[in-house]
Design a protein around this nucleic acid. Sequence first.
DNA 1: CTAAAATTTTAGACGTGTCTAAAAAATAGT
DNA 2: ACTATTTTTTAGACACGTCTAAAATTTTAG
Lengths: 227, 227
Amino acid sequence: MQLEKRQLSQSEENYIKAIYALSETCEDTISTNLLAERMSTKASSVTDMLKKLTDKELLTYQKYQGCGLTPKGRAIALSIVRKHRLWEVFLVDKLQFGWDEVHEIAEQLEHIQSTQLTNRLEAFLGYPKVDPHGDPIPNDEGVFDTPAVRVSLASCETGSKGIVMGVDDGSPEFLQYLNKIDLKLGSEIEILEKLSFDGSLLIAMEKRTIQFSHVVAARIFIQPYQS
Amino acid sequence: MQLEKRQLSQSEENYIKAIYALSETCEDTISTNLLAERMSTKASSVTDMLKKLTDKELLTYQKYQGCGLTPKGRAIALSIVRKHRLWEVFLVDKLQFGWDEVHEIAEQLEHIQSTQLTNRLEAFLGYPKVDPHGDPIPNDEGVFDTPAVRVSLASCETGSKGIVMGVDDGSPEFLQYLNKIDLKLGSEIEILEKLSFDGSLLIAMEKRTIQFSHVVAARIFIQPYQS
DNA sequence: CTAAAATTTTAGACGTGTCTAAAAAATAGT
DNA sequence: ACTATTTTTTAGACACGTCTAAAATTTTAG
Ligand SMILES: [Mn+2]
Ligand SMILES: [Mn+2]
Ligand SMILES: [Mn+2]
Ligand SMILES: [Mn+2]
């Protein structure tokens, strides 16, 4: 998969990354409006960009039918995700930033163009498998190293136990809340009770009990014990 | 000196930096053509940019009279130079890049916006005073830490001795040549002979003798021994 | 001092990326 | 099936940064 040499603008890269992220979570064909909302821009701007990226053979897209990444587009998305997550590890592990402070900076650093830099950074960091929020880091070929099973807390049954393996990194405020209750990657959690009427959870974590709303629980991912 | 919040484009930053660099070496008022050549662009593009930066109060500029930096502009230039040189130290010290490989990557990294990142990077690197080419690194206030005396080899007399304190970092090829002859920062040098007709030098370095053209000698800077 | 040459600016154009408003197509409701 | 609504695209505009060609200004030389 020889990419390289094609150099995309930061805008183009951000669109590619957003389409990749939406493809992972939502259905496989991404609507113009969904992408517009994600990019905080207007649908008309999105349409223009979809045309351009389609011309560059990074997207499959047909009028009114939504879009998806081509293999070439996906490879580029993965290289950006790789850089983003490696830089987040650097910021947290080496420069002592908090996990709530790194996303914005990584949004800039992910656009630095140098395969050599990325690979040497990875080696310098000791070939980390996950970023500070538990998200997996693809290797130079865009392959993830068989990620651990991760299940949303919201989808677990009463009585389940597990270890926190990931958290949603979308909002600094949420991560700061997790700081406050001292929840980290690796924390042990047990679901004591699940309140069906509002979806909130009572959980035990290191001898304390905490109440999580459904929204919070949906953003925390654990590896359940097989007990 | 509160700057911040004013965010410049990468283009604007590159112009500011180039004007700063030219102000250091050449006279204090920079001509449009000189800047155009440095930026590898056309004089008309330069004129447009000079107007814009003057509107932002980063330049003093009057039609046909050339330009110079305002204090605010100079502060911005220094913050970019600071970032460039700190990242170069990172690349060489931590990621084992050669001093001939770092300039291009630092050209990108110098535009990352986060004062906190810059300051933490500086601490992580152990508050280096110079970059891998011997150029001084300004502190967070834009102040250089009383740099060592640095004299161009070309301007030294026969018989002078000194330690290499800096080299021109403008071209990777030149730096690779220095690699080949094993000249580094810290190398001890003695000028054995100075050929007046072509300005070339015969120098001794660690028990070897090497011939330098005037062009090469002008790009190497030493701290002379006071003997 | 004046004409030629060099430098610098202006005028007009183009590509990128964005926007608003209007048109076109798809979807939903009756 | 036929509107009404929503989604998406098109049309036209604007800011940015660049270019070429032409005009204006400054500098150099006779
Ligand atoms: Mn992130
Ligand atoms: Mn992350
Ligand atoms: Mn450099
Ligand atoms: Mn340097």
